[in-house]
Simulated assay, not measured.
Amino acid sequence: MNRAKYLAAIFFGTFVYVLLSMTFGQNSLHCYNKMEEQKRLISRQTSDIQNINSELSLELAALQNDRAVIASYAHKLDYVSEGEKLVKITGLRPAQTTLYDTGTVLRHEEPDFISERICKIAGLAFALLFALVFFLYDVSCGNIVLGKNKKPIVTGIPVYDIPQI
């Protein structure tokens, strides 16, 4: 078997390793897409929470400084100031207070991937498989002879044993 066949077997093994590693490995495109999706979900949730925080900050500032807002909250809690008269109406639902939905808890999920060891083993197995196929091809073509059935190799000038007349 010549060197080109060995190199081809090594090339095929390396190609299989790289292909597996890039598509299903730890740093593969599949894992990258999974992580990007998680990043989008986290950034969307973060922006929602920041919006809620800014609304609550405005509400807190209004409750600390604005007398009209303080009075409206006090009225919701059935407080009255001097000179006001309280009228109770029955049969109506109480006012719904605003509940802020901050979403669900997001946990980091590890993407599924094939370990680097398995990728390397698969690449080595393919390299050995191709080397074996090339070796068996050479044996079947007669390029490599196994055992004692070797053809004699003649070097130099061939001498023929021709009977003399």
Rank of each mutant, 00 (worst) to 15 (best):
Asn65His: 11
Ile70His: 03
Met35Ile: 15
His75Glu: 15
Arg93His: 12
Ala95Tyr: 08
Ala71Val: 02
Thr90Ile: 04
Thr104Trp: 02
Ile70Val: 10
Ala125Arg: 02
Leu41Gln: 14
Glu116Asp: 15
Phe134Trp: 09
Thr104Ser: 15
Lys34Leu: 00
Asp48Arg: 08
Ile114Tyr: 00
Val69Asp: 01
Gln50Trp: 00
Cys141Asp: 15
Ala61Asn: 14
Lys34Ile: 05
Ile42Ala: 14
Gly83Asp: 04
Arg107Leu: 05
Ile52Met: 03
Asp101Trp: 11
Leu86Gly: 06
Asp78Pro: 09
Arg117Lys: 13
Phe135Asn: 05
Glu59Lys: 10
Ile118Ala: 14
Leu124Met: 13
Lys85Trp: 04
Leu63Gly: 12
Val80Asp: 09
Arg44Leu: 07
Asn51Cys: 03
Gln96Ala: 11
Phe126Pro: 03
Thr104Cys: 11
Thr102Val: 14
Leu63Asp: 10
Ala122Phe: 08
Ala62Pro: 00
Asp112Met: 07
Ala74Lys: 14
Glu59Tyr: 03
Glu109Trp: 06
Gln50Thr: 07
Ile118Asn: 03
Asn53Arg: 06
Arg40Ser: 13
Arg93Ser: 15
Leu99Gln: 13
Gly123Asn: 01
Tyr79Pro: 01
Phe135Ile: 04
Arg93Trp: 05
Pro111Ala: 07
Asn51Val: 00
Thr104His: 13
Arg117Tyr: 08
Arg107Asn: 10
Ala127Asn: 05
Ser47Ile: 06
Ala131Lys: 01
Ser57Gly: 01
Gln50Ser: 08
Pro94Ala: 14
Ala71Asn: 11
Phe126Tyr: 08
Tyr73Ile: 01
Glu55Pro: 00
Glu55Gly: 02
Leu58Val: 04
Glu59Ala: 12
Phe130Glu: 00
Glu37Ala: 15
Thr98Gly: 03
Leu41Val: 05
Ala74Val: 03
Phe113Thr: 02
Gln50Ile: 02
Leu106Lys: 06
Leu63Ala: 14
Leu106Asp: 09
Leu132Arg: 12
Ala131Ser: 12
Ser72Ala: 15
